[in-house]
Each structure stands twice: as C-alpha cells, then as structure tokens.
Design a protein around this nucleic acid. Structure first.
Lengths: 294, 294
DNA sequence: CCCCCGTTTTTTATACATAAGAAACATATG
DNA sequence: CATATGTTTCTTATGTATAAAAAACGGGGG
C-alpha cells in the first residue's frame, strides 16, 4: 500500500553518484551510500539490487563494481519520486489557486480524496498539517472551510513578517564582529549579485534565494516560532507565484536590489538605516502580493 | 468504529435543558434543540429516543412532553463524552509532563498508540496537529522527536508573546472612544475584581480568565497568526500548570494584580505606561514559568 | 410558503490491514 | 575487534472498512 517513492528517489540519486565513478571502480560500502543518499540501508540494498539486475553494477562476493554507466537507463519520472502526501500538497494548492475555491468554500475530505485519487486518510492528514498556514479552518464533526487567499490574509501575514524580520535585523546589527554570520551575509550578497548578472536566464531561481536570505537573517537568534512562520511565507511565495507569472522577472529584479540595499544597511549597523531598508522591502513585497491577489 | 461521544455529550446537555422545564411541558422542536445543543438533528433525535426509552420524555403524535424529571438517571461519565482525539491529547500531555519524556526522546507512533489504547491513525493525526506547538518535530520516514519542555522553549515563547501583546496593547490605546471594546475591558476588570474577592475558593478559575483577557486585547486588530499563537500559550498554561500546582494561589493572585494594572494603563492610553505594565506582567509570567520548569 | 418531522444519503471519526522503509540483530571477513 | 553484509523485526505510509454524525430530501400541516 505504501508507495516506493523513497526507493525511486534514491535510485535516481544513485545514478548521479555512479556517474562520478569510473567503469570497473568499486562502489562505496552500503553504509557510506546510506549516508550519502539519506535513506536506510534497506533502501540502499534495494537500489543496489535494482542496479545489479540492470547490469549497471556487477556484484561479486563482498564487492560491487561498476559494470556499465547508466546512460540509457531511464530515471524514474519525477512524479513517481514524490510521496503521496507531497502529491496531495501540490494537488491541493492547484485546486486552491486555480480558483476552484472562493472564500467560504466548504472543503470536503471525501470529495477531495476522490478528486485527487488518494485515500481519505491522506487528505485528512494533509489538511491537519496545512491548518497552520491560516488558510483553512476546521469545524467540529464537519468538514473544513477555506478562508480564502485574500487581501486580509496577505495583510495579516505581512504584519507578522514585519515584526519578526525587523526584530532579527536589529539583532543582526548588534552581532559581534567575529560572528561567522557576517561571512555568510557576504556570500549571500555574492549570490545575489551573481543572480542579478544573469537575471534574464535565472530569474526563477530567486524564490529559493529569497527564502534562504530571510532565513539567514532570522538565524541570528533562533526562535522556533519564527522559523515555523517562515514556512508559511515560503509556502505562500512558492505556490502563489507559480500561478502568477506576471512581471516575474521585473519583480524579482527589484527584490534583489532591495535585498542588496538591506545587506548594506545591516553591514552599516545603523538601526535607522536598517529599519528604513526593511520597511521599503516589505512594503514593496506586500504591494506585489496584494496586486496579484486582486 | 466511531465513538458516540457526541451523542453522550448531547444527552448530558439535554438533561440540563429538561431541568429548566416543568413536568408535562412540551419540548422545543428538534431544530430548536439542535441549535441549543450544537449538534445535528440526527443526534438530537437519538437523544430524544434515548430519553423516551427511559420515560423522561413521552412522545405522542407530533409532540413530546416531559414525563418525569431526570433525577436518578445517570449522566454519562465525563470520559465517555470526550472524542478519542481529545483523550489522546490528554494522554499525550500527561506522558509528556509526567517526565516520561526528556528532550531528544524519540516518539514512536505505534508505541504511543499501544500505550494509549487507540488506533495509530489517531496518534498520527494528533501529532500532526500538535506539531504547531513547537514541542515536537518530524523526521522523514521515521518517527518524531520530542524537543522538550525546556527553558529555551519558554524563552522563545515569551519573546513572541511580548511582540504580539505589546503590539495589540498599543493599538488598543489608539482605539476611538466609541469602541465597544472599552465596555468589554470594563467588564473584564469587574471579572478580575470578583475573582480576587473570592480568590481563596476560586483561584483555579484564573487560567481561563487569563486566556480570555489576553484574547480580548488581541481582538483589537484581529490577526489569524496571533490568534493561533494564543492557542500555544493557552496549551502551555493549561497543561503545564496542571502538573505544577506549587504556589498556584499566590501566583494567580499576583497575576490578577498585574492584569488590573494593565487595564488601568490601557485605559490611560499612555503608551509608556502600557509598555511598562505589560513588560512587568510578561516578565513575571516568564519567571514563574521558568521557575517551574527548572 | 415555512416549519416540523420521518427517511435517505453523504461525510467524518476511528479502527484495522499491509507493503515499503527503518532499525536492530547476527554473522562473516579482513 | 571493527566494519561490511545478510537477516529479522519493528515502524511508518497509505489504503480500506464501518459506525456515528451531519446534511439533504420529501411529505404534511398550519
């Protein structure tokens, strides 16, 4: 009943590992592979068995060598490497953002399960986890209500975001010179400049960089509640902008500029400057989001 | 498979409703009862049937009258009126706070299900919901880790709490004179004074009043994320203090005093005063919590 | 037409089942 | 004896089943 997505993902990853090895070379131990692939040894063995069956690996007594490079062999398609629970997340987001749902819509576990082609248990579990994003609400002994990806959602989100990020940025400025975070800020600036230089081709990479940037600022004084809130932000941006490509390139270019200004402000350690730069950035991010909702 | 806790709770509640009626009096319509009991008509009918079977209600064609007062009849015991998911919550909290779990303990769904005598599904669902409290963390394809009810948990909690509550209190002070919230603040003061007058007997009622007070402050400018965070606070105080009765009376008495000072500060609309009173209250609450953790 | 009640249909809460995956244990090999 | 592999056991992810509860439907009576 459980799907073998873990295996398939590991299989695909293993192909990449093998590509770095030469023909006839001996493979690392099962345990080493386990660590590299981030799965259990049970799964590693299954992958090895699969590769042996295809002649990619030749298993002799107590050693395994590369038999042939996995050129032709197809990787498992991406979809098959996603756990059902992850697929449900995507399906749900699509359902939500495609506009099938307006504020107040009742969410029916059974119906969603049917629509997505999965078991109700999974939908239920997903909804329970998804609740923390503040977009749905449960009613006792009845289904859920979709509260809508509305302007007030965006405003409430940004109100919290401002509190949290201002707090972190200020703490950042107060960091001692020796802190390793200063180095990280510098490489963050480098990453931004790099992306900016190649913005036409890589503008879609910004979303991930954005998340990393804000997480770095927050890392100055870890707080599990703030970190958890960043998941909310990441979710919103990740999915929302997947369905709103309008002006994506320009929008990201502007944001990169704002980030760079912020980095400079933080490095200056001037609280007033930091506040100004942050407010500017958050205001513009908020306006962009609001604009795309309306 | 599903338990009939909804029915039993409704049955108990119905007893209270009947107590307010006279012998021979006609009962409200099913629909009216449905609204009063907060359940579906299906459940109302089940309750009515149960009462008829016991002679409490006499059902004639198209009307039902009280046959006898439900004196002797036993209410269903409290435990049987709690949904399994609610029981699991209690069991888990007990497991956690009794000290069976130290920071880093691995949580095993199967084992918990066995220990609590429920299905794994339920435990899983509970853990997924419980995750938002920041006390547990999931690891891919493996169980959960209990992060511990530690000092850093308390500190992180209070850091957020301070941000959120200061924000609300300030907004409160800026409220126009006509706002109905001013009235509510006044009755809140009255409730505090009442409790204070009878503190020896009713000190345990403070926990609920505390939660109501802080939610009222927050209500000034609703924000779903702040409201959701108050669930975290409520959980912490509700359960933690259930296992830490030390100085409960004195502690609550102090807190009431601080609340009253806060109310006064808010009514004065003097930001500096409000800040001072709030910081005082939160500091003392934090110290109390930290003290009881150590 | 609106509310009331009887009936039927749908959905949720909970239990249970099982393949995939993780972890623990055992054995072998250098 | 330490590390690698083979084997067994336990746990998680996901599907299915079903009683309880909710919701929808339908016919009367005021």
């Amino acid at each position: 009943m459980r799907t073998d997505t873990t295996f398939k993902r590991a299989f695909n990853d293993m192909i990449d590992i093998i590509r770095t090895l030469d023909l006839g070379e001996e493979l690392p131990s099962e345990n080493a592979l386990r660590a590299q692939l981030g799965v259990s040894r049970t799964t590693v063995r299954k992958v090895l068995a699969g590769m042996s069956a295809r002649g990619i690996i030749i298993s002799e007594a107590h050693r395994r060598i590369i038999g042939e490079q996995p050129q032709q062999i197809e990787r498992y398609p991406k979809e098959e490497t996603l756990a059902i629970s992850e697929q449900v997340e995507t399906s749900f987001m699509e359902w939500m953002l495609r506009g099938d749902a307006c504020p107040g819509t009742e969410i029916n576990e059974t119906e969603l399960a049917r629509k997505f082609g999965v078991a109700t248990t999974i939908v239920r579990e997903f909804l329970n986890r998804f609740q923390k994003y503040g977009l749905i609400e449960k009613r006792q002994n009845a289904g859920w209500v979709f509260k809508g990806f509305t302007a007030s959602f965006a405003l409430e989100l940004f109100e919290i975001r401002e509190m949290f990020e201002m707090r972190s940025a200020r703490l950042f400025a107060a960091l001692p010179d020796g802190s390793p975070l200063w180095k990280q800020i510098q490489s963050m600036r480098a990453a931004h400049l790099e992306l900016l230089a190649d913005i036409d081709a890589r503008f879609q990479d910004f979303s991930e960089l954005d998340s990393r940037f804000h997480r770095l600022i927050t890392a100055v004084a870890p707080n599990r509640f703030i970190e958890s809130f960043q998941d909310v932000i990441a979710m919103v941006f990740h999915y929302h902008y997947q369905w709103n490509k309008r002006d994506e390139r320009a929008r990201n270019e502007v944001a990169i500029g704002e980030h760079l200004a912020l980095i400079e402000a933080i490095e200056s350690r001037n609280i007033a400057l930091i506040d100004r730069a942050y407010r500017l950035h958050l205001t513009s991010a908020r306006e962009t989001l609001l604009h795309s909702i309306a």
